[in-house]
C-alpha cells in the first residue's frame, strides 16, 4: 500500500533532486569552460544556461558570472536555484521520512544543511567549480543510495518516474535552447552556438565521452541532437529517460484497475513511439524545435494523467 500523499512527495523529491543535479552540473561545466571563451562567447553561453535553468527570465547582466552564479545557486527567492531545489527536495523527503533509508535521508539532509551555511563569497575566491563538483559528487552518491539502499517497491518506482520525467524535460529544453529557438520569455537569443558550445552542451549532459565513443570526436550539431535524443543506451538521452519512465509507470499503483491505468499507458506509449522512431537527419531547425516542444508537452500530459489516476483522484468515485 502506498499513500497517495506519500507518492506525491516521493515523486517531487526525486524531480527536485534531478533538477539540483542538472543545475550543479551545468554551472560546474560552465565555470570550467569559461577560461577558453572570449568574454562575448562566455556571456552568450551564460545566457543559454540561465534560459535552460530559470523558469522565468532573471534580471541579470549576462556578462557577470558572479551575479549569475549567485542567482542560480544561492538565491532563495529564485524557485529554480540550486538552494531552492535542495530545499524542496528535502522538505518532501522530510514528509516521507519513514519511506526512505537512513542513508538516503541523512545524505540529503546533510547536503541541504551544507548549502544553507555557504555563501557565494565562500566559494568564489578559490576555484568555484570545485564546489559544484563536490555537490555533484554528493548527488551521485545519493543516486547510488537510492538505488542500492531502498527496496525497489512502489515508492522507488515513483522516485524513478519523477526523476526521468524531469530528465526528459530538462534535456529537451536544453537542446531546444541550443538549436537557436527562443524559449518563452526570452525574446533576444544569443548568436548561434560555436564549436566549443556544442562540446559544452555534451558536457552539460555528461555526454561528451559517451558521444565520442559512438560518433568519434567529430562534433556535428545534428549528431549531437541525434545522440541526446535517441541513443537507447545513454542515461541522459531522452529516449532512455522515456524507457525508464515507462518501466516505472507499469509498476506504480499495482492495485489500480485497468480503466484507471489506460490513459497513462496510452500517453507514455505515444511518447515512446516518438522517440523510438524519430530521425533528426531530415529535419529543419524549425521542425527540431517543434519536435522538442512536443516532447516537453507530452511529459506534462503524462504528469497530469498520473496525478488524475493515482494521486488526486476523487475518492467518492472509487468507493
Amino acid at each position: 500500500m502506498m499513500l497517495a500523499r506519500v507518492a506525491d512527495s516521493l515523486y517531487w523529491m526525486s524531480r527536485y533532486i534531478e533538477r539540483a543535479e542538472h543545475t550543479s552540473r551545468m554551472i560546474a561545466v560552465k565555470l570550467e569552460s569559461m577560461v577558453e571563451q572570449t568574454p562575448e562567447d562566455a556571456a552568450a553561453s551564460w545566457t543559454r544556461v540561465v534560459a535552460a535553468l530559470a523558469g522565468e527570465p532573471l534580471d541579470l547582466d549576462s556578462g557577470d558570472a558572479f551575479q549569475t552564479v549567485q542567482a542560480l545557486t544561492f538565491d532563495r527567492h529564485n524557485p529554480s536555484s540550486l538552494a531552492s531545489s535542495l530545499r524542496f527536495a528535502r522538505d518532501n523527503a522530510r514528509q516521507v521520512r519513514e519511506e526512505l533509508s537512513t542513508e538516503v535521508w541523512e545524505n540529503l539532509n546533510r547536503l541541504y544543511l551544507r548549502i544553507q551555511s555557504v555563501t557565494i563569497d565562500d566559494i568564489w575566491v578559490h576555484n568555484p567549480a570545485r564546489f559544484f563538483r563536490d555537490i555533484l559528487d554528493t548527488l551521485y552518491l545519493l543516486d547510488g543510495m537510492i538505488d542500492t539502499t531502498l527496496r525497489h517497491g512502489e515508492g522507488w518506482h515513483f522516485l524513478e518516474l519523477g526523476r526521468f520525467i524531469e530528465r526528459a524535460q530538462l534535456v529537451s529544453r536544453l537542446l531546444d535552447i541550443h538549436f537557436g529557438v527562443a524559449a518563452p520569455g526570452y525574446v533576444v537569443m544569443p548568436p548561434q552556438p560555436k564549436y566549443l558550445d556544442w562540446i559544452v552542451l555534451l558536457k552539460f549532459c555528461t555526454a561528451f565521452e559517451p558521444y565520442c565513443k559512438v560518433h568519434t570526436a567529430a562534433i556535428a550539431p545534428e549528431r549531437i541532437a541525434q545522440f541526446l535524443l535517441f541513443d537507447a543506451g545513454f542515461p541522459h538521452s531522452v529516449r532512455y529517460a522515456v524507457d525508464r519512465m515507462r518501466d516505472a509507470l507499469a509498476r506504480v499503483a499495482p492495485g489500480a484497475p485497468p480503466a484507471r491505468r489506460a490513459l497513462c499507458e496510452r500517453l507514455s506509449g505515444r511518447l515512446k513511439a516518438a522517440v523510438d522512431f524519430g530521425q533528426i537527419d531530415d529535419m529543419t531547425s524549425d521542425a527540431i524545435d517543434a519536435f522538442l516542444v512536443d516532447i516537453v508537452k507530452q511529459c506534462e500530459q503524462i504528469h497530469d494523467a498520473v496525478y488524475a489516476a493515482y494521486i488526486g483522484y476523487d475518492a467518492e468515485a472509487v468507493l
Binding site: M1, M2, L3, A4, R5, A7, E154, F158, V252, A253, P254, G255, A256, P257, Y310, I311, A315, V318, L319
Partner: peptide, 17 residues
C-alpha cells in the same frame, strides 16, 4: 490521507482506498 465512508475508515492509496 484518511476518509470515513459508511463508518469505515479508509486511507487514500495510489491503488485506491
Amino acid at each position: 490521507d484518511l476518509l470515513v465512508n459508511d463508518n469505515m475508515v479508509y486511507a487514500r492509496t495510489t491503488s485506491g482506498l
